[in-house]
């Protein structure tokens, strides 16, 4: 069986859904953040697959930018988590309820 574009898209969709599941289900802030990384990686896989199958190299340049942005995002996000830890004393999502109606 030949591996086509749709195989890569379904694989990336599965990874993205896993990340989505984790973000809804888990309560540890750091694990939620890691699930976010999974979703970013799934999007990257889609970009690379399309870049391969349409012969446009632009998709790979986009992934390059995405990885850069993800690295910056991880630095700021982890600093935020450390700040939350210092203020709240724990890293649970349910301790962040100031905006809860």
């Amino acid at each position: 069986m030949d591996i086509g574009l749709q195989h890569y898209l379904v694989a990336s969709g599965a990874l993205f859904s896993l990340g989505l599941f984790g973000i809804i289900f888990r309560r540890n802030l750091i694990v939620v953040f890691m699930c976010l990384e999974l979703m970013l990686n799934a999007a990257n896989l889609t970009l690379v697959a399309f870049s391969r199958f349409t012969q446009h190299i632009d998709g790979q340049v986009f992934v390059f930018f995405t990885i850069t942005v993800a690295a910056a995002e991880v630095a700021v996000g982890l600093a935020l988590i450390v700040a939350i830890f210092r203020i709240k004393g724990n890293g649970k999502t349910e301790s962040l309820k100031e905006l809860k109606f």
């Binding site: 898209l9 379904v10 969709g13 599941f21 809804i24």
Partner: peptide, 16 residues
């Protein structure tokens, strides 16, 4: 979480 993730996955696979 399961319902949301599975629905999303099914939608994505159909598009794929």
């Amino acid at each position: 979480a399961t319902v949301v993730a599975v629905l999303f996955f099914v939608a994505l696979s159909r598009v794929s």
